[in-house]
């Protein structure tokens, strides 16, 4: 990488690819071997959440993990900036 690259503001396209893959691979791995209902559960949860807030599908993350021998379903929803984002379509 040359000196000019240090001043580049936008991340390189390789870094964008890496970040996207890191997320999708983690998501697909956590669904793998897990129950088949995960994708449907995610879709239905998204529908319910969207009745209250207008969130993008990518802002709902579902992960299945293990903690102390229990399976843990982790749900995280990134709410949009500002109030009154209003219900979605």
């Amino acid at each position: 990488m040359g000196l000019l690259a240090l001043f580049r503001k936008t991340p390189s396209s390789a870094n964008v690819a890496k970040e996207r893959l890191r997320i999708i691979v983690a998501q697909e791995r956590s669904a793998r071997g897990g129950p088949d209902y995960l994708p449907l559960l995610r879709r239905e949860l998204l529908e319910v959440i969207r009745r209250y807030v207008n969130v993008d599908p990518s802002s709902v993350q579902i992960n299945l993990g293990r903690e102390d021998g229990h399976e843990v379903l982790e749900l995280s929803v990134a709410l949009p900036q500002g109030r009154g984002a209003g219900p979605g379509g």
Binding site: A5, S12, A14, K18, L21
Partner: peptide
């Protein structure tokens, strides 16, 4: 890879 257009060996190794 050097110009940031392609993922490096380390990137792919880390992801997989």
């Amino acid at each position: 890879v050097a110009s940031g257009e392609m993922m490096s060996v380390d990137d792919v190794r880390e992801i997989l």
